[in-house]
Computed example of a mutant assay.
Amino acid sequence: MIDFEVRELRYFRAVAEELNFSRAAERLGMAQPPLSRAIRQLERRLGVQLFERTTHHVTLTVAGLTLFDEAERALDAMSAAARRTRRAALTTPTLVVTAKAGVATDLLRRIVEAYGALPDAPRVEIAVSGYGEQADMLRDGRADLALLGSPFDRRGLDIEPLISEPRVAALPSGHELAHRTALSCRDLAGLPMPQCPGSTASERDYWAGRDCYASQANESAERRPDVPVSGPVVHDSSQLLEAVALGQAVALIPTSLAERNLRDDVAYRPVHDASPYSIAIAWRDCTRAYWTARLVRTAVELTAGQDGGKLAEIA
């Protein structure tokens, strides 16, 4: 049996992400020669080549790409085990739950209040997180549960849907589309849209309203709208709405966000074929803790009035 060392996996991940041994060594705070030796020793033990090396380029082999994915999961699992073990030793048991600021944190506060009314419920700590951070916080143990907003990154997680709502187009009040009563996703094609840092291609498709075409096999490539490649980078909903008001972009946003931000310089119009915005509660698929299950059950009862299918698996 081949055992990995945490140190080796961290070394490998650094080189795989930088694709440059010098930059990886600098990032790790070490010299390059011992880093190169450590990677070669790992390759010899595994009996595979992880990197193709030339004078000017370093690339991952097929085996290296596999270890890249596996190493991420392994390192997250080890970090999660350490964090959760420390939390279990606290004098006051604590569950950490997280959500992105806005509609999700408002919902999370209501869930936590209802949960806190249960007899002997442990203390709950709410951690407000940024765009796309929630799933990673579950995987590496910084959080026990999270509220995820569409689109979901489900890898290694169990998810229970809570609420779903339509999305609307947010437009500068003077925009030509603002004079119409309803729109389609195709009407928005090619217009600049806000870009979230670190978002994936599928996430960009969702926020641009292009995801509705992905499942239409009879939609020819020529007829599909172009992916919007321009638009200001935004970090939160307030910045997004300011970009819209200034005429720098249009956006597809949840109806509840529009209702909370009525303003003269932004017009909201329904988009009949836009996929909905959903919020789900998520936890690691290896979690079986009783109080985690109770918090999930509380969330489902508060939002839907009935238990969900996943609850029995962790109760």
Results as ranks from 00 to 15, higher is better:
residue 15 V to M: 06
residue 143 A to D: 08
residue 203 E to P: 00
residue 210 R to A: 11
residue 147 L to Y: 02
residue 8 E to A: 07
residue 212 C to L: 12
residue 86 R to S: 14
residue 222 E to Q: 05
residue 86 R to H: 12
residue 129 S to D: 09
residue 211 D to V: 08
residue 63 A to C: 01
residue 218 N to M: 13
residue 99 A to I: 09
residue 79 S to L: 14
residue 87 R to H: 10
residue 131 Y to H: 11
residue 278 S to I: 01
residue 97 V to K: 05
residue 186 R to V: 08
residue 58 V to Q: 03
residue 6 V to Q: 09
residue 181 T to F: 05
residue 11 Y to K: 00
residue 90 L to M: 13
residue 148 L to G: 01
residue 306 Q to C: 10
residue 191 L to S: 05
residue 93 P to D: 08
residue 202 S to A: 15
residue 44 R to N: 12
residue 310 K to S: 07
residue 302 L to H: 11
residue 236 D to T: 03
residue 14 A to I: 04
residue 81 A to L: 13
residue 253 I to F: 04
residue 78 M to D: 04
residue 79 S to K: 10
residue 220 S to C: 08
residue 207 W to L: 12
residue 304 A to W: 10
residue 288 R to Q: 14
residue 192 P to R: 00
residue 19 L to H: 09
residue 58 V to T: 12
residue 9 L to N: 00
residue 299 A to Y: 07
residue 200 T to K: 03
residue 272 H to T: 12
residue 212 C to S: 11
residue 195 Q to K: 04
residue 218 N to F: 15
residue 168 V to A: 06
residue 189 A to N: 06
residue 177 L to K: 01
residue 94 T to H: 09
residue 140 D to C: 12
residue 71 A to W: 01
residue 81 A to P: 00
residue 148 L to F: 04
residue 258 A to L: 08
residue 232 P to C: 03
residue 57 H to P: 00
residue 168 V to M: 13
residue 229 V to I: 11
residue 64 G to Y: 01
residue 235 H to S: 06
